[in-house]
Design a protein around this nucleic acid. Structure first.
Lengths: 106, 106
DNA sequence: TATAAGTGAAACCAAATGGTATTACATGAG
DNA sequence: CTCATGTAATACCATTTGGTTTCACTTATA
């Protein structure tokens, strides 16, 4: 779905959720393990994990009575790629800046 | 300030603001000109522009009685660079995946 | 100096967000 | 089966967010 770009950005807007992504970059974790790293209830952490899932930034698998959360590189990459839109702009600006400098020199 | 990473992500969380960034990638625009592209009041657009400024994603200069908004590549790049944290992860995962495939083969 | 055009800012409102507490549902161990 | 553990889901609350309306301020121009 194309609209999950919105969900992805929304998920990244919260510092707790970005922190969770950093944790999951080191290793997969259950909800309880993630919650140990934050001073808030498991329920609150669960909400964050749900939002991260909706943004396709993490995946969840069932392991016995636990749910293990893991980073989803594809989803992260999709949001990351949004910025490529500005690649040309960055190049253009650098070129323009260079031209300005050249002009000032003469 | 280090906390403007948060302001940057917050600014990107709204589709209207991402749309404004796309507009400004084409050319610098006044508030009124930006507002022409959206079905909302100038005041609402102004709020979005303020949030984009707080995230260092745009800059504003005064031109007579107009305020001209322009993209700020530096700010955008700073948010963009946040993802580089996961670069190693992506590589590792790809390597692990490769290993798995090799194992299955044998 | 009027006056219109453009922006800034405040007050206000509905909806979304981030959090808690509580309760119910599944699962592994004794 | 029983019970402890882990997760899911709901109701509820305070704050933030995205929007409007309104009014004041600044500046170019007749």
């Amino acid at each position: 779905m194309i609209q999950s770009e919105q969900q992805g950005f929304r998920a990244l807007a919260d510092p707790t959720r970005r922190g969770i992504l950093h944790l999951l970059a080191e290793q997969d974790l259950t909800i309880a393990e993630v919650a140990d790293n934050f001073q808030m209830t498991r329920a609150a952490v669960k909400k964050h994990l749900t939002i991260l899932q909706e943004g396709d930034l993490i995946t969840t698998r069932t392991d016995g009575r636990s749910r293990v959360n893991a980073l989803n590189p594809d989803g992260l990459k999709r949001v990351h790629d949004w910025f490529s839109f500005f690649d040309a702009f960055w190049d253009d600006r650098l070129a323009a800046l260079k031209t300005e400098i050249e002009k000032d020199k003469t």
